[in-house]
Design a protein around this nucleic acid. Structure first.
Lengths: 315, 315
DNA sequence: TGTATTTGTGACAATAGTTGTCACTATTAT
DNA sequence: ATAATAGTGACAACTATTGTCACAAATACA
């Protein structure tokens, strides 16, 4: 095996192993320890952050960095990766410790001139906007860690009724239009609940010894499907103007219920839990003349009551 | 210079140049053409997609791939890049020709085992949600290209009044909560307008010979600041409950106007163009009891009129 | 305190790889 | 035809790589 090839392999091997001894590698690569020592020195000079300790239980270690072997990306792929990372700058809070900007500048730095030019041209011409928020999300890493390692987390949560302490076991976290949410099993309510992370006033791993549940079968993708809806259902029918259709497209919950006509108008039709009436009433009021609720009567009543209240407030 | 080092350099050089001859490289690297030929063959074996043609004007070419030299990413950086790209899968339409998934799988494939494990653990525990839409955005690349190369584009645009043909010169494109928008100079209105890309029925480079304007000073980041607002202004004051504050945080336009009290409630205060009254009226109606408009009277009147209309509609 | 384990350095000879030169062949645009 | 280009093979000169050995230094552990 040629030296260059061995060096590449060595790079990958040490990255995989993290910790190793010279003798180990010598056996693996069928060369002498002296050669491996020389190779490691060379890798060091090429930028692989190696660290070694002498003595029994000593050996080599690769520090926090990981080296990727030469990867071939097409120009389009490189550009897509760049802008994907670029979009992360809109998030003031992320569950990763590092700033994505450091990865971005490395990526940018190593790219060949013409790809770099292409990116420069596009930089001010394309963007993935996420609403910027004043809200703070200091506990994302703790929640994510709790979800991954199936830990119970003690939080102080600010709900409408005030701040309360709760034990939760996170299913995961997700960002949606600039806010972070954490679906989690709540030991207080004994059910899955959705928490808005900026309303969490404190979070730490629980030390009271509450046994975590086995929720490995639950994850972000399926948590909705697995939750048995015990609520009473009723049917929904709403007429929509063209603009109303466009507005409803934005809503997750309406995706399965939305129908369109050829002229652009449409309607919502499907079943809904009765507990959603307050939310839906306020939502359809927000659509104004673009939506006309025709069923259920309870929803129409709720809307009328809300309208009357507002009329009164504005005298 | 050692052979391994020369090979690495060569890799970068051929990536930069795309097209080159053996003689050229021999001069650049101060070695014989025979050596370069042997090196190129070796690069080929290492996976660099080289292609050559003999004869005058012949030479070597690198095919569409780009090779990145070994880049050191920290584990955190690699994870951040992965999830940034992962988030792109929510976009059914992108202005890049390639799927980001191919870049993603390459990235994933080359990552060392423990980073891969880490990603697998996190995959179902963290997400950047973007509302999925039924809307279609087939002309993103044309619009982006128009913005980059300062071209005039002819579009058919569906507005409330029907479909009309227009000449526009795009400033850029951006995605916001699942929809793509294109701010552009409109030759019909003779001003900057914002177009929703799913309402563009057709788009192609203009062939009528309309001279593009020099809009290079305009880009996504500054277009708002440069637009002179000629509208009449009035002052806005709105009381907000705690929930109202949270809801307003989501809105771009309210960021500079939002104030909070220690108890969590707050208010909106600032100036607004009178033309925004219809939009704001509908918006505050959507907030229901969480917002109480106190100024301007025109806005309150508009809200009352809308409420009355809705009351009537729901009998 | 001694011993085993581990990194690390230097020297040297044997071996293996690299390089340049030269003489060719083949293709193709002009 | 001619010039420009890639491509191959052989060989000698040169350079780099490798293994071996000797030895230094640190450290855990019995």
């Amino acid at each position: 095996m040629s030296k260059s090839k061995r060096l590449m392999d060595l790079m990958m091997t040490v990255n995989r192993k993290k910790k190793f001894t010279v003798k180990e590698l010598a056996t693996e690569f069928n060369v002498s320890t002296r050669t491996i020592l020389r190779d490691l020195q060379e890798l060091s000079e090429l930028g692989v952050p190696l660290y070694s300790e002498v003595g029994p239980h000593g050996g080599y270690q690769v520090l926090n960095e990981r080296i990727l072997p030469p990867i071939a990306f097409t120009e389009e792929e490189a550009v897509a990766i760049f802008f994907a990372c670029h979009a992360l700058r809109h998030y003031a809070y992320l569950p990763f410790e590092t700033e994505s900007s450091s990865a971005l500048s490395k990526f940018y730095f190593y790219m060949s001139g013409d790809v770099r030019d292409r990116i420069d041209e596009m930089k001010n011409r394309i963007d993935f906007v996420i609403p910027s928020r004043q809200a703070k999300f200091p506990y994302l890493s703790i929640l994510l860690d709790g979800a991954i390692r199936q830990k119970v987390i003690r939080i102080e949560y600010e709900s409408r009724e005030g701040v309360s302490a709760r034990l939760i076991q996170p299913v995961g976290i997700y960002a949606s239009s600039g806010l972070w949410y954490c679906p989690a099993y709540c030991f207080l309510r004994e059910d899955i609940r959705l928490f808005r992370c900026d309303r969490i006033r404190s979070a730490a791993e629980d030390s009271s010894g509450t046994q975590p549940l086995d929720l490995r079968h639950l994850y972000l993708g399926n948590r909705e499907a697995l939750l048995p809806s015990e609520q009473e259902l009723t049917s929904l029918y709403v007429e929509l103007t063209e603009e109303g259709v466009h507005r409803c497209e934005a809503e997750h919950w309406s995706a399965t219920k939305l129908h369109r006509r050829e002229d652009g108008t449409g309607w919502l039709e499907g079943s809904m839990p009765k507990g959603d009436i307050p939310f839906l009433a306020q939502f359809f009021i927000g659509l104004g003349a673009e939506a006309t609720v025709q069923h259920p009567p309870e929803l129409i009543d709720n809307i009328k009551r809300r309208l009357a209240e507002m009329m009164e407030r504005y005298g």
